[in-house]
Each structure stands twice: as structure tokens, then as C-alpha cells.
Design a protein around this nucleic acid. Structure first.
Lengths: 219, 219
DNA sequence: ACACGTCGGTTGTATTTACAACAAAGGAGA
DNA sequence: TCTCCTTTGTTGTAAATACAACCGACGTGT
């Protein structure tokens, strides 16, 4: 689709590369698309990843599931964002978690080998692409560090406030929406859903925040 | 010192680049060294980082400290390892935590701008260096993900077992040393020290593991 | 209107944790 | 050897959490 190109061009991976050049680079890199239904796995635990994934449309959760079906959500990928790059950049890197589509999704794949191997002539923006990839990795690194910050809080309340504050800051206002439902948020913060729900209501009663479904407001 | 070069050459950042070329690249990149006493800050919260740090000797803890003096250890840097690369790679990136020397240490700094800007002629290994940087970022990413795995465990016991299992796996045997003392380990896993100590002893009594100071053995 | 499934909130109980305070063990230095 | 200090283990209590079970609201499809 035409729309896809606009998503790609606006992504952090192709930042600073024009729409025209982006299009020609996609060809040069042998990029290909695939569709997934809600619930499908894009990457599976143990799989060897050789391609970076760029989400064109939909939403993907990066999850860790252990033997006993214990689920923990690492983070959510929205349209325009990149995932799988960590494992793709480590030669023969085995994926250590699952990437699951939580909405019907379309994904663009870019073979890392071809991204990293500078092609002699055509793609003058190849260097830029590699720098962008570096930047994407660094940003994900920062994201993980911030998540560790939430997780290192001792109580459910602190974890919630740490997470909600970040979302509020990210949106630039005290009122915002989150993309997780309660169970997903609990799996993301690694807490019990009912205890979390309880804590949210207590905070509401104390006048710390307001919420309705996915809409939150910090006071 | 002569010994420094050997550490640099063996680091993941200069992997695949010979000793000779490494030496000439360090000059070309304008690398410089600094010494720190135990307790000194290498990077400080809020500081703008423009150089990647390579630890030549000693040990550094990457820490997060909040307003109330609450301490959390993100991870430990040993000799030969790189740190600060996340923030250095994000243009004008503010450091969001502290890098503190926990032993007397020496650090080599490499300006990122000069690493990323390919110099036309002399350094034929420049491309390799950039790829190595990419790889270092990806590996740190994986490290953070694994730490998130420990942190997402609900109980102190599970966190301990998750951490100790990883260390055991990393060493390749069931008997190994860790570099943290009890308080540091507790700050690393974000649990209460006394509760953790208690849990360790319970597990020892149950025959799950043996330990003496920093030496552990999983049974 | 009805059954059905999903989602969020509520409650009670057993377990686990944090916190504080103290005791014991070991090392460094006088 | 003695003292001082750091590290580690121990204990009791209050607080927080996990877990399970249940209820009500809402939406969908028949």
C-alpha cells in the first residue's frame, strides 16, 4: 500500500531519509511484508532472527512466558516502531521471548546483513540507515532502563505511579490513555491484577488520580 | 600503560581489529584516559554524555538513586566492558543514572561523534568499529532484558534463583563467585537485604544451594 | 431478550515482604 | 590482642501481596 511507505519514512529507522530514497532503499534491501492475525506469533521463543521488523499497522506485544504459563509483557510495539533488532544484530541470536500480534498487524522485514553490508553505489543513505539503527538500539536500551525503574519499585502503588507518571510525561499532559487493559498492565508491571485494581481504586479515593477504563488523569 | 592496549584490543568494541590497528585507531579517535578513586562518579545523573567509556581496570556500578536516597543497582561493569554508550549514542542524551567506581578504576573515553563519522582514509577498520558498537548495544539490550526477567519474578526466592541460575550458566558450572556483597545484591534485585539473607539461608537449609560469602553452589 | 464471554472491581485469607533492631563473625589497624 | 567497623545472619511485627472466588457491567451474536 501507498500508506505503508509513509509509515516507514516516518519511522526512526528511516529518519532523515526522504520518501523517494526510502522507497528505493526498501527495494535495494529486499524488504518484504507479512500480515498477522490477532494472536499470531511474529517471532517465537528460540527462533533465530535475521531480519529487523518494522510494524506497519496494528500492535505487537513482546512477551516472556515460562514453563508454567506465567506471562510477563516486556513492552508494546505500536505502528512505526521497530522490534527484533536486538536479536537480529547479534549474529545468530536466538530470540528469548515471543512477539505476539495483539491486533491484526502488518510487518515489514529488513534483512540485517543487507542493512549492515554497505552496498557500493546506489544507496547513498546507507550510512544514515546504520546510524539510525544504532539510535534505535540506544533508545530501546533507554526504554528498558526506564522499565527497570518501574520494576524496581517495591509496592504495587509505586510501580503504578512510576508507570503512569512516565505515560503522562510522554504525552505531555496529566490526562492520557494507555493501551493496556488491566490484565495486560498487571502482566507488564508484574503484579497481581486484583491487587492492582484495588490499589488503583484506593488512589482514586484518595484523590491522587482519576480513571475510566483506559483513560487516566493524574491530579 | 602497555597493558591497557591489551584490554582494549580484547574488548567487544575492538573485536576483530588487531593490536596494531587498535593502537592507531585510538590515536585517530583522540581517545583519552582518566583515573577514579573508589567512590568517585564517572558519569553523573543529568550530565550530557558525548563519549563512550571503556573500563580499563577496576569496577563500576551503574546506579539509580531517587530523592529519598533509595538506591538501585542497574548493573556492574567489569574491566574490558563498555558503559555510557546508550546515552552517548543518543545525541545530547542526558544520563539518567550514576556510574560510580566501586574500586579504584581507570577509564578510556572515546568521543562518539568521531566514532560515527567515518574518516576518509586512515582507519580502514572504522566500519568494523561501528558494527561492534552496534553489537555492544544489542548485547546490553539483551542483558537488560534478562535483568527484567529476574525483576519480574514475584518473590525474593524466585528472584534469587533466577539471578543465581544465570550466573551459574554464565560461568558454565554450578559453583561460582558473584561480585556483589549482600547489600549490593539486594539493591541489584530490589529486595530487602535481611529478607534476602533469610531466604538464602532457608534455601541452604532445604539443600537447594550452598554458599560462603561470595561463593555459591547450586545443587 | 437471552446466553455467553470479557473486563474490571471487591473481598477474605494465607503467604510474603519490609522494616527495625540486634547479634555474631570477620578484617583492618593500632 | 583489643577495638572499631563492616558484613552477614536472625527475629518479631506491621504492612503489602498473591491467590481464589465472586459479582456486576458491558458487548456481541443469535
Amino acid at each position: 500500500m501507498e500508506n505503508d511507505l509513509r509509515v516507514v519514512e516516518k519511522s526512526k529507522l528511516f529518519k532523515g531519509i526522504g520518501e523517494q530514497d526510502t522507497a528505493s532503499m526498501l527495494k535495494c534491501l529486499g524488504a518484504y511484508r507479512r500480515s498477522y492475525r490477532k494472536g499470531d506469533c511474529v517471532f517465537r521463543n528460540g527462533e533465530r532472527i535475521t531480519a529487523v521488523a518494522l510494524l506497519l499497522e496494528g500492535a505487537v506485544h513482546i512477551r516472556k512466558e515460562d514453563y508454567w504459563g506465567n506471562l510477563s509483557i516486556l513492552h508494546e510495539i505500536s505502528a512505526g516502531e521497530v522490534f527484533g533488532e536486538t536479536y537480529a544484530c547479534l549474529d545468530g541470536g536466538e530470540m528469548l521471548n515471543n512477539a505476539v500480534a495483539v491486533k491484526n498487524s502488518r510487518v515489514l522485514f529488513l534483512d540485517v546483513k543487507r542493512v549492515l553490508t554497505t552496498c557500493s553505489s546506489a544507496c547513498q543513505f546507507h550510512g544514515k540507515l546504520i546510524q539510525n539503527l544504532l539510535s534505535v538500539l540506544a533508545q530501546k536500551n533507554k526504554l528498558l532502563t526506564r522499565k527497570l525503574e518501574h520494576m524496581s519499585r517495591r509496592t504495587t502503588r509505586e510501580k503504578l505511579l512510576s508507570y503512569l507518571s512516565e505515560q503522562s510525561l510522554r504525552e505531555g499532559r496529566s490526562s492520557f490513555e494507555i493501551s493496556f487493559n488491566r490484565q495486560q498492565l498487571a502482566d507488564f508491571l508484574s503484579v497481581d491484577r486484583s491487587a492492582m485494581s484495588n490499589e488503583l481504586c484506593k488512589m482514586r479515593d484518595e484523590g491522587i488520580l482519576k480513571f475510566d477504563r483506559n483513560h487516566f488523569e493524574l491530579l
